[in-house]
């Protein structure tokens, strides 16, 4: 009896470890990373994928509270390159840059409750890296 329970448990663990992720991954389409204006980003894709949120958070406080604008990290800079050509936005469908990854990772994007997801008129008179 006990041995059977152990076997059942092992089977269950094996299912969790191997089967579930496979099922989950098969069911969710990979994000579409379609960059409308390809070029040099401010860091490598690996770094951007892992740390873009920290970069934006850090810059957000610098800009908001200390008035530092036009630096390397700039949400509007992201939008300029990554807005899709079809609707001019980083949002809209799971084909759009920000939304595709965030939908895949199931992370809510709060930025565009306030920020404009489409590129706009020319900004800071200064400096683009």
């Amino acid at each position: 009896m006990l041995r059977h329970a152990g076997l059942a448990f092992a089977a269950f663990v094996a299912f969790i470890v191997f089967a579930l992720p496979a099922v989950a991954l098969a069911g969710v389409p990979k994000p579409v990373i379609d960059i409308a204006n390809p070029g040099q980003c401010i860091a490598s894709p690996e770094v951007m994928r892992r740390t873009h949120m920290d970069m934006l958070l850090h810059q957000r406080d610098k800009t908001m509270h200390e008035g530092q604008r036009g630096g390397k990290v700039d949400l509007n800079g992201c939008i300029d390159c990554h807005a899709s050509k079809s609707n001019g936005s980083v949002l809209g469908s799971n084909q759009n840059f920000c939304q595709s990854c965030h939908a895949y990772a199931a992370v809510k994007i709060d930025c565009f409750e306030c920020h404009q997801p489409k590129p706009g008129k020319a900004r800071i008179a200064g400096i683009k890296p």
Binding site: N76, C114, H115, Q116, P119, G120, R123
Partner: peptide, 12 residues
């Protein structure tokens, strides 16, 4: 229709 330089949004 926010100006990209002037973020504004609901609830604030």
């Amino acid at each position: 229709h926010q100006n990209p330089e002037v973020p504004r949004g609901q609830g604030c």
